[in-house]
Design a protein around this nucleic acid. Structure first.
Length: 802
RNA sequence: GCGGACAUGGCGGAAUUGGCAGACGCGCCGGACUUAGAAUCCGGUUCUUCGGAGUAGGGGUUCAAGUCCCCUUGUCCGCACCA
């Protein structure tokens, strides 16, 4: 009597069973494995099949580790501060926390459909005061250690979000969140000294098992460069301008200088004759948006009327102002060597400035340079350095300068400090108090958390003030230091604050004495496997590393990198585009689960393509894995009563299957694991048919191997095979190398590199035997004299004849 | 502009890392079952003038190249005047 594969019944049954008997027993003395998903922002739109991909992947890894004898930490939580809930509040008046709670409930229901083994007792929510108490506590520690400071400067301002953005949030001159063009606004904001950690953030990348691409992006973002700072005295004054250059070897070729429009010395050195032109240019530069400053490649600039003196040869170099020099990199001033720098060359051509060649490929000066020569070469026109290779001069010139006292070697980074305050409502209040007498005082730790108060209007203002500034009774407090009248800081933290340390909280989420106990952190951290999208390559992942290093330095944690291994799953696209409600190309997992079952959807999410690449959703694709599960079910149903002793054939097939599946799983090529299941199940069915039955070991091994992927059907089959305990109480099967070998092997016979025949020989046949058989197989195709004979055991043999 | 990744049937993709290209699946074609359809099962499916040709195009290294090297083209990603 055969039964049909009823996924609805099976999945319901096992979901209930797992409720009662968790698959992952906790508080054991097993070795620990921490497998973490990037926690989601619980949006009102819910999940689509793209979200599933990473969650299924991490769940497969977690279940695999359980079968390997680990106790795992596989938690889920909510990164719930953020603009959508706030914008919704502005529109409807609903408090963001209400909308957030609803979204979380919906998300959680959908996440549960994945059947991942999340431990909901460890659930966290960044908007929960019990959680953000510690987000604020970390900030207070940073403040106390001088890593948080206030600064007024031109900042990235998103006119749509009406708040400032960190550098990392404004790449390409557009807002990372909403895509609006970012403008500059001069504002006083809270900064975090992430640059203090630049060197360690760069060096420690070496320790990490992360995709090369992400490491490269972080290292480029940090942007370390070696160079020199050189003082150019301003002619006729006692002032000097410090420039930064990575090419000190070209110092003799410096024919002019350029200052950033924002450079403070501009006003001081500009001569009366040029004052109007400079004022106008500086003003225009200040109103120019990031974008136009970036896209207007045509060089602009104005002469200040002043000259600098090249400290090496005393040459007079006119000082210009141009917006192609950035105020916040290096010293905001450069020496210009048009002969050897593309930008300087362009500027010199446009404003007819002299060009002096100081490096040449062959040691001879070119008649005329049509473009800058930026390669290394031989020094010319450079006094005592003439004839020296420029790479050598790069080191010698700074040495000489240091000796003479007008310059020194130095290092620069592109990384900027982190603009940390936001002028919005739905974020953690920055726990500081401004007192006229005592200055800025942190909220005492025992008074944390500073609860986000209710406001009448959530609307952001255009002034750069948070809506919290309007609540007098909240803003006005007593100074914790002197007891006098004081005001609260009204800015909130960026959304990244809560996610920069959440992985620590999962280890000990109910702790109200510290962010997590030392023991819990020691037990679980660092994260063994971190799964998430690539979009956080330089945002969250850099911030989290920074936080971890800081907490390490103050002794809160005893590791300085949070994530040992990182895996970036690709996107799932539909019609070639990322799924979104606007485009109307969202595929809902709810419907898929309903028509094919959770197991089939889990397997298809992996089968769809290499997990690290983007893959296009194919509505028919899931049919393939669904048919596979049906086939497997039918096979078990038919053969469960035809159990026989194992045969050499069955045994070899089983070991091969375990070997292949295990290796592919270790390599995380999960698409090939799924195809492997299909391949080996087909093989097993064929062999069983031949043998008139199947051995128990084969069925059991297959079931265990499959269980991380399709846990429900695996449990059901495991039970059918006579087991009382969950399949996850069993052990990942092992293979025996010696059992993998076939008795005979098929060898392709090539003549001059082309396959001409196939022979079957004993697996351990020696070269001569195989070659003799090969020649026989070639027969009269083999003519001429044999010049070479190659035999690769078990694969191929090639006879080269002339 | 600079840097990086990639390019394999109608489609998604395999290929033990230099060793029989196209595994596995989708789709399609044919057959069985059926009054019929759906579902299911079985067979076929790179092209071909049946000699061969073939992994974007061209060259090279090698007994042997999808895989290594050089050039070209195309697609995607990152950075955006960082001196």
């Amino acid at each position: 009597m055969s039964t049909k594969y009823n996924y609805k019944e099976i999945e319901k049954k096992w979901r209930e069973r797992w409720e009662k008997e968790p698959v992952n027993p906790t508080h054991t003395d097993k070795p620990k494995y921490y497998c973490l998903d990037m926690f989601p922002y619980p949006s009102g739109n819910g999940l689509h099949v793209g979200h599933w991909r990473g969650y299924v992947l991490s769940d497969v890894v977690s279940r695999y580790k359980i079968l390997q004898g680990y106790e795992i930490l596989h938690p889920m939580g909510w990164d719930a501060f953020g603009l959508p809930a706030e914008n919704y509040a502005i529109k409807t008046g609903t408090h963001p926390s209400v909308a957030t709670q609803e979204s979380i409930a919906n998300f959680k229901r959908q996440v549960n459909d994945i059947a991942a083994i999340y431990d909901w007792d460890r659930e966290i929510n960044t908007t929960d005061p019990a959680y953000y108490k510690w987000t604020q506590w970390i900030f207070v520690q940073m403040f106390k250690h001088g890593l948080a400071y206030e600064k007024e400067m031109p900042l990235n301002w998103c006119p749509n979000c009406k708040c400032v953005l960190a550098n990392e949030e404004a790449t390409n001159g557009v807002c990372e969140r909403c895509g609006s063009q970012v403008t500059k606004k001069n504002l006083r904001q809270w900064m975090l000294k992430i640059t203090h950690y630049a060197e360690r953030l760069l060096n420690d990348l070496d320790k990490l098992d992360w995709p090369a691409k992400v490491k490269k992006m972080q290292s480029d973002w940090i942007g370390k460069s070696y160079g020199a700072e050189i003082d150019f005295p301003v002619d006729g004054t006692d002032k000097a301008i410090k420039v930064y250059t990575t090419r000190p070897d070209t110092l003799y070729g410096a024919t002019f200088m350029v200052l950033a429009p924002e450079h403070s010395i501009v006003k001081e050195i500009t001569t009366p004759e040029y004052k109007d032109a400079i004022d106008k240019y500086v003003f225009e530069a200040s109103t120019k948006s990031n974008v136009s400053r970036m896209t207007d490649k045509e060089k602009t600039g104005v002469f200040t009327g002043a000259y600098g003196i090249n400290p090496l040869n005393g040459a007079k170099t006119p000082i210009w102002v141009s917006d192609y020099v950035l105020a916040d990199y290096g010293t905001g001033a450069i020496m210009c060597v048009p002969a050897h720098d593309d930008r300087d060359f362009e500027f010199a051509k446009k404003f007819d400035l002299p060009i002096i060649q100081v490096i040449s490929k062959d040691g001879k000066e070119a008649e005329e340079l049509n473009e800058a020569y930026t390669e290394p070469g031989i020094m010319i026109n450079s006094g005592e350095f003439n004839g020296m290779p420029s790479e050598e001069a790069k080191a010698k010139v700074p040495d000489y300068m240091e000796e003479k006292g007008f310059g020194k070697k130095t290092i620069n980074y592109k990384l900027r400090d982190w603009v940390f305050s936001r002028q919005r409502y739905w974020g953690e209040p920055i726990p500081l108090i401004h007192c006229e007498k005592c200055g800025i005082v942190p909220v005492p730790e025992e008074e944390l958390p500073v609860i986000l108060p209710n406001v009448e209007s959530y609307k952001p203002t255009d002034t750069g003030e948070s809506p919290l500034a309007a609540i007098d009774e909240w803003v006005n407090v007593k100074c914790p230091c002197c007891g006098g009248p004081a005001k609260r800081e009204t800015n909130t933290m960026p959304q990244w604050a809560g996610s920069s340390w959440y992985f620590l909280r999962y280890c000990d989420n109910h702790n109200d004495k510290e962010l997590a106990s030392k023991e819990a952190l020691k037990e679980w951290m660092p994260v063994d496997m971190y799964v998430g999208g690539i979009e956080h390559a330089v945002l969250h992942l850099l911030y989290a590393r920074f936080y971890t290093k800081f907490l390490y330095d103050i002794g809160v944690v005893d590791f300085d990198e949070p994530f040992k291994k990182l895996f970036n799953q690709g996107m799932i696209t539909k019609d070639g585009a990322k799924m979104s409600k606007n485009k109307g190309n969202v595929v809902s997992p709810d419907e898929m689960v309903d028509s094919y079952g959770c197991d089939a959807l889990r397997m298809y999410e992996l089968f769809i393509g290499p997990p690290e690449l983007d893959s296009e959703w194919d509505d028919n694709g899931i049919d393939g894995v669904y048919r596979y599960l049906n086939k497997l079910w039918k096979f078990v149903d038919e053969y469960k009563d035809k159990i026989i002793d194992t045969t050499p054939e069955l045994e070899r097939a089983r070991h091969k299957m375990i070997y292949e599946i295990t290796n592919r799983l270790e390599a995380l090529t999960l698409n090939t694991v799924v195809s492997g299941f299909m391949e080996f199940t087909n093989k097993l069915i064929a062999v069983s048919k031949e043998a008139g039955g199947v051995d128990m070991a084969s069925l059991e091994s297959l079931t265990i191997l499959l269980s991380p992927f399709a846990p429900h059907i695996a449990e059901e089959i495991w039970e059918i095979l006579g087991h009382k305990e969950s399949v996850f109480r069993s052990v990942w099967p092992s293979y025996d190398e010696s059992k993998l070998k076939e008795d005979t092997v098929n060898i392709a016979v090539q003549l001059n590199g082309r396959v001409k025949a196939n022979i079957t020989v004993a697996a351990d046949a020696d070269k001569d035997t195989v070659l003799a058989a090969a020649k026989e197989a070639l027969g009269n195709k083999l003519t001429g004299t044999i010049v070479k004979e190659i035999y690769v055991p078990g694969r191929i043999c090639n006879i080269v004849a002339k």
